[in-house]
Amino acid sequence: MPKYVMWGNYCDNVEEKRAPFRQAHLDGLKAQKEQGVLLTIGPTKDLKKVFALYEATDEKTVRELVENDPYWQNGIWTDYEVKEWIQAF
Score class of each variant (00 low, 15 high):
M1D: 08
M1Q: 10
P2E: 06
P2T: 06
K3V: 11
K3G: 03
Y4G: 05
Y4S: 07
V5F: 14
M6D: 01
G8S: 14
N9Q: 10
C11V: 13
C11G: 06
N13T: 05
N13D: 15
V14E: 02
E15N: 10
E16V: 14
E16I: 13
K17D: 08
K17S: 05
F21M: 04
F21D: 03
F21S: 03
R22G: 07
R22F: 12
Q23S: 11
H25Y: 08
H25L: 08
L26D: 12
L26R: 15
L26S: 11
G28I: 03
L29D: 04
L29A: 12
K30P: 09
A31W: 05
A31Q: 15
Q32F: 14
Q32G: 03
K33R: 15
E34A: 15
E34Y: 12
E34C: 11
E34S: 12
Q35M: 13
G36N: 12
L39R: 08
T40L: 08
T40H: 03
T40A: 05
I41K: 04
P43S: 15
P43N: 13
P43M: 12
T44V: 12
T44L: 14
K45Q: 12
K45R: 15
K45H: 14
K45Y: 14
D46Q: 11
D46M: 11
L47W: 13
K48P: 08
K48L: 15
K49G: 02
K49L: 14
K49W: 12
V50D: 03
V50I: 15
V50K: 01
F51H: 11
A52Q: 06
A52K: 00
A52F: 11
L53Q: 00
Y54M: 07
E55M: 09
T57F: 06
T57N: 10
T57R: 13
T57Q: 13
D58I: 12
D58V: 11
E59M: 08
K60A: 04
K60P: 01
K60D: 00
K60N: 02
T61N: 01
T61F: 03
V62N: 00
V62T: 02
R63T: 11
R63F: 03
R63V: 12
E64Q: 09
L65M: 06
L65W: 02
V66I: 14
V66Q: 02
E67C: 05
E67L: 01
E67N: 05
N68F: 00
D69F: 03
D69L: 01
P70V: 11
P70L: 09
P70H: 10
Y71S: 02
Y71C: 01
W72N: 04
W72A: 05
W72Q: 04
Q73V: 00
Q73S: 00
N74S: 04
N74A: 04
W77L: 09
W77Q: 02
W77D: 02
T78N: 10
T78F: 05
D79V: 03
Y80G: 06
E81I: 07
E81R: 13
E81H: 08
E81T: 10
V82Q: 01
V82K: 02
K83H: 09
K83D: 03
E84R: 13
E84S: 07
E84N: 06
E84D: 01
W85Q: 00
W85C: 02
I86K: 04
Q87V: 03
A88K: 05
F89R: 08
F89H: 11
